[in-house]
Design a protein around this nucleic acid. Structure first.
Length: 547
DNA sequence: CTTAGGG
DNA sequence: CCCTAAG
């Protein structure tokens, strides 16, 4: 059931994507550099996109600038070999169908049997071209651009980039003859152009493991966003099918890590549970953005958000993995602690996007606290002020880890380290135990018994949002140790030590000892000294007789 | 998630 | 305090 639902979900997602003419795929060699430049920008400067309100008009303008109506294939010299193979020999378009969001799920296989005989694309109507297209590629298209269709079909039939011919003779599912002969000038021209412009092409290879080099993996999938005026038909449609560009860059280690992380989780499909997408108007009234996630043809996750602010429903692409500031320590931690929450990157970004960072008010005034309020963070370092990520914690909440993160979101003084009276420096999120805390702890232990730390935490430490049960436990352990270590020598060493670390009053230690003994927590070897005197005869079972 | 214990 | 193994 779940799976089904997920599939459906995805389906609808896809439809939406298709409807607004929003291809995520990156295939056609035909494409213009449309999304590419923007994509590059966005990948370079995502944070800007994140943090600034995108002016729709501006964006449109930029689109206009960067989208030449027609751009020849761009083939990077590096990729020329494999790239050409991908494009021309393997007919990427053939395989794109299944994975491309812009195509329907009901992809059928190419049926060349329908293509017997002579075909002159020039003479075909749009409808016929559609037929041919489907027969060739096994998928429907809504593109109404004849030229585009012809070129596509031609390429598909000839397995080449050569689109000069428009007439074919097909027999036995095989292309017997094409109308004109032509070399690969187109390609060369494209290459030249490409070199001149300094862009590269993205030869999709989903499905086909044709990536000869690992470099090929590093593709920036881009999509083309356009004003989705709700009209999904018409001239803009052929832009829809345009692929994205790629830029050649060696994948960083981090990228590889993250990618693999994402991809490995991707298939679980769980991600979809996060995003329910269907109709347009459904944005949460609370959020300005409705995150939309798409899987690009090469399996990379592309997150787009639909900006409702402009009213024009612009889709702003956000490549999830994009993050250019230094790696967050917490990031890997998150991954590590959330091996089940797939697509971490995507999820995070999504959350970040949709989140109004709110600060938990889980920290209350602490009376006996000398130190300023610093929330303890169990796992992570100080999160950057980076809005994008501070928001993360706030959104989630279903993960413990995330909670931890968000709790950090509060009084985040950027003080990473805090000096100690001793002179040393501690890491920021270290909160010295105050006396009152210790007393509360002891109290709690005496009441609920050592070991019931969650209880103690809940009841006695309700006000201290930091101090997890684990912390209590640890502290108790330390107290225990201290209390028993104190007995033998209360001399000079002791005093010095006390001054240095923590002047736990003897009475408290005494009580700790008491409790420990009553609960048979007495550390075996440390049981030296005068245990017999104080505890053995501890007549007063004062607090309670829990144990 | 909570405990317990080692690091 | 952090991290993990076990319930």
């Amino acid at each position: 059931m779940e799976v089904k639902g997920l599939l459906i979900d995805e389906k609808s997602e896809m439809h939406i994507v298709a409807d607004i003419g929003q291809p995520i795929g990156c295939i056609s060699n035909e494409g213009s550099s449309s999304g590419m430049l923007l994509q590059l920008e966005s990948s370079e400067g995502l944070s800007q996109f994140e943090n600034t309100e995108v002016d729709p008009d501006k964006l449109n303008a930029r689109l206009e600038e960067t989208v030449p109506s027609f751009t020849p294939s761009l083939i990077d010299s590096h990729l020329h070999q494999s790239g050409s193979i991908d494009e021309c020999s393997n007919t990427p378009v053939l395989t794109e169908g299944g994975a491309l969001p812009s195509t329907t799920v009901t992809t059928s296989k190419p049926d060349f049997s329908k293509l017997n005989g002579e075909i002159c694309l020039d003479n075909l109507s749009i409808k016929e071209l559609h037929e041919t297209f489907k027969a060739t590629f096994g998928r429907e298209t809504t593109v109404k651009d004849k030229q585009w269709l012809k070129r596509r079909i031609t390429m598909g039939l000839t397995n080449s980039c050569d689109v000069s011919a428009t007439t074919f003779i097909i027999k036995d599912n095989k292309l017997v003859k094409k109308g004109k002969e032509d070399g690969c000038d187109n390609v060369d021209g494209a290459l030249a152009y490409n070199l001149a412009v300094g862009t590269t092409i993205n030869c999709s290879q989903q499905g086909a493991p044709i990536s000869h080099g690992s470099q090929l993996e590093d593709q920036v999938v881009s999509d083309k966003r356009n004003r989705s005026t709700g009209d999904n038909s018409g001239s803009e449609d052929h832009h829809t099918e345009q692929r994205a560009a790629k830029r050649v860059r060696k994948p960083t280690r981090r990228y590889i890590e993250e990618l693999s992380e994402v991809e490995s989780k991707e298939s679980s499909g769980k991600l979809r549970t996060t995003v329910k997408s269907s109709a347009f108007g459904q944005m949460s009234s609370k959020f300005h953005f409705r995150p939309v996630r798409n899987v690009s043809s090469d399996g990379r996750t592309v997150v787009t958000r639909l900006d409702s602010l402009g009213g024009s429903g612009i889709q702003i692409p956000c490549v999830s993995r994009v993050r250019r500031s230094r790696p967050r320590k917490n990031f890997m931690a998150l991954l590590k602690f959330n091996p089940n929450s797939m697509g971490m990157t995507a999820t995070l970004v999504k959350k970040a996007l949709g989140a109004h960072s709110f600060l938990p008010d889980n920290y209350e005034s602490e009376k006996a606290q000398s130190a300023p309020a610093q929330v303890q963070q169990r796992f992570l370092g100080v999160p950057d002020k980076d809005k994008q990520f501070t928001a993360i914690g706030a959104v989630g909440g279903h993960h413990k880890v995330l909670k931890q993160v968000d709790s950090s979101g509060d009084s985040d003084d950027n003080i990473v380290t805090v000096p100690t009276s001793k002179g040393g420096i501690r890491r920021k999120h270290h909160r010295a135990w105050t006396l009152s805390e210790v007393m509360k702890l002891v109290e709690g232990v005496s009441r609920y018994g050592a070991g019931r730390w969650s209880e103690i935490k809940r009841l006695a430490f309700a006000s201290y949002s930091y101090r997890t049960s684990v912390d209590l436990k640890d502290k108790w352990r330390n107290l225990l140790k201290a209390s028993f270590a104190h007995i033998p020598s209360d001399k000079g060493v002791n005093s010095r030590k006390n001054a240095a670390t923590m002047p736990i009053p003897e009475p408290i230690l005494l009580r700790v000892r008491e409790l420990a003994e009553r609960q048979s927590q007495v550390p075996p070897n440390l049981t030296s000294g005068k245990e017999a005197g104080s505890s053995g005869s501890s007549v007063h079972e004062k607090q309670s007789g829990y144990l």
